[in-house]
Design a protein around this nucleic acid. Sequence first.
DNA 1: TGACACGCTGCACTCCCTGCAACGTTGCAC
DNA 2: GTGCAACGTTGCAGGGAGTGCAGCGTGTCA
Lengths: 206, 206
Amino acid sequence: MIVAVAERGLRERKKAGTREALAAATLQLAVERGWEHVTVEAITAAADVSYRTFFNHFSAKEEALLVPAGPDQPRLSARLRAQPPGTAVLDAVRAALHEELAELERDPAALRDRMTVVLATPSLIPRLVEMGSADERETAQAIAERTGQDVEADLYPALLAAVVSAAVRVTLWRWQQLGGATGLVTVVDEALDALAGGLPPPPPVA
Amino acid sequence: MIVAVAERGLRERKKAGTREALAAATLQLAVERGWEHVTVEAITAAADVSYRTFFNHFSAKEEALLVPAGPDQPRLSARLRAQPPGTAVLDAVRAALHEELAELERDPAALRDRMTVVLATPSLIPRLVEMGSADERETAQAIAERTGQDVEADLYPALLAAVVSAAVRVTLWRWQQLGGATGLVTVVDEALDALAGGLPPPPPVA
DNA sequence: TGACACGCTGCACTCCCTGCAACGTTGCAC
DNA sequence: GTGCAACGTTGCAGGGAGTGCAGCGTGTCA
């Protein structure tokens, strides 16, 4: 179901190839030079395509860095909807997050590089928020469906979606801090446990 | 201490005047035309200053909309540090948020307008995250100081700071939804209570 | 009142991003 | 295989954001 995407004819393969080349060139150049010294022109030169083509694949420079996998990649809201109906909301969210992060972790080196670039470039952080949770609204909707609430009328769905988004951000940051030694899933679970516990006022007071 | 800022000589008053004029023009034009149809040139024309001057006051177009009050405005981290030392972290955070939001609510009409513009322009939402919590790092640091933890080593401070940031965002959104009828403080308390309660799985199931 | 500080201005420039009109290749039906 | 339609790529022209720099005028302070 997720696999069938890649093999659909020469045309689509070439297209995917171009996107991949652009994303790879973007990441490499960003690591080498620093984000603000990477121009779209340099990226397209490295990927050997025209300047204009870049924007046929990405709506913004940041997208090439932060969302290298195309729009076919299932988003968090979709994963959440795919969870078995009976499950409690928080458990379903946790499971969806596990899937999402496991996917990210399939290429840990690239993720490390991306996070390095982001952390070195404060202006990218909000972009990460934007991309990573471009479907925060959609996620809120999915949560609402699960709890039988209304996204407009009730606070809970939007709040949970926003908090999850924040948790993901912190997870990525912390994972990077830990040098990638600990798995993403482990880190996000730590965050989710803290949240589910009501943000215990002062933890053990080290 | 906070008051003394405004009255410091003709020069500073004029400077503050231009900034205010630019911010006001920005908001008004954004409401009238929609954010993406507002150019910096139009803003400066309305405020009767040169194009270049705009960027002497704001580092980006969005800043004029989202952070109209200059950098002198005490940020959340500062307010958090100002809370009495004995207080529990969550209580201190809550108090700091109350102050922050009360300040915002001093001009409800402007806040309403700003939120209207933001909600009508998805790309502005992450910017709101950036601006509203440009000092999220600083807030995390302040939290760490309060809990006696280390921002680098411990997850808690960064997580709480991120979650608070998310809560503020949802609060503003919901306040707007409610038509400003309910006070910001009331709304944020609702969010904070939910968080402190550990995101109770499915609330009353309406 | 004279010298300095500093905000404002104009200009030239880089870069992001878009709309539009070709062009060449792929996919498909006959 | 041939012709046609679909589609990814390309080039170009242009608007708008944001920056560095040099000069000007006004507030500030000794």
